[in-house]
């Protein structure tokens, strides 16, 4: 892993960038080991690109993950003879812009919590059992709000405990599509959970 520190402001020697191009070219032919190495090495570089776009530090990892999902889906658009850095940079910047647009939209409906808000909040432990039941209901509602494809993937793989192969056979979707849908579903649930107001 090349990234140093949370924002990954590391130096990336030219040799490694050339190697990334070769690794991705091999991944295009189906070489899993090369692809795993490629995906393991690029996040540091992606973090640096995303950080430079002004995405706040606590959101960088989300954008990097979205970038990884996108570059996986469009890995056939990388032309092996060309430098890989501009290809990676363009995708990461695009995802950072998308994140910022979504963030601007959300910010319009959110109100910052005042510093003295803690005085008005109840003791979090006082309603523990009640909260647990409420949380179960909340999660159920959140799952229901997911797009149909993501919900189905989540239900089959996480709630139904089906194997990838079983879920793929049942839904007719590829295993990669199911993995991506599940990851996105979990990310969406996490975001909904974090954004919910008590």
């Amino acid at each position: 892993m090349n990234g140093a520190g949370p924002a990954g402001y590391a130096k990336f020697p030219g040799m490694e960038q050339e190697a990334w191009g070769e690794l991705l070219a091999r991944a295009q032919s189906g070489d899993e080991r090369a692809y795993r190495r490629f995906l393991g090495e690029v996040p540091g570089f992606l973090r640096a690109v995303v950080a430079r776009t002004g995405v706040p530090i606590d959101a960088i990892e989300d954008v990097v993950q979205e970038t990884l999902i996108t570059l996986h889906a469009i890995r056939h658009t990388y032309e092996p003879a060309r430098p890989i850095k501009p290809w990676l940079t363009a995708i990461a910047r695009r995802r950072a812009i998308d994140w910022r647009r979504r963030g601007t939209g959300a910010a319009r409906h959110e109100v910052p919590m005042p510093e003295f808000a803690a005085e008005t909040l109840a003791d979090p432990d006082s309603n523990r059992d009640l909260d647990r039941n409420a949380a179960r209901e909340t999660v159920r509602e959140m799952v229901a709000r997911l797009p149909a494809g993501q919900r189905r993937a989540l239900e089959m793989l996480k709630l139904g405990e089906m194997s990838l192969a079983e879920a793929s056979a049942a839904s007719g979707q590829s295993t990669t599509a199911l993995k991506v849908a599940t990851h996105r579903a979990l990310a969406a649930l996490r975001k909904m959970w974090n954004n919910q107001t008590p």
Binding site: Q28, E32, Y78, T176, H183
Partner: peptide
């Protein structure tokens, strides 16, 4: 690396399907 990112990388690189790269523009 973040654990979620590691899990994602595992998911993406497992059962990798070969793809035909686009021809040059």
């Amino acid at each position: 690396m973040n654990r979620d990112t590691e899990k994602l990388i595992d998911a993406l690189s497992g059962n990798l399907r070969p793809v035909r790269p686009l021809d040059p523009p």
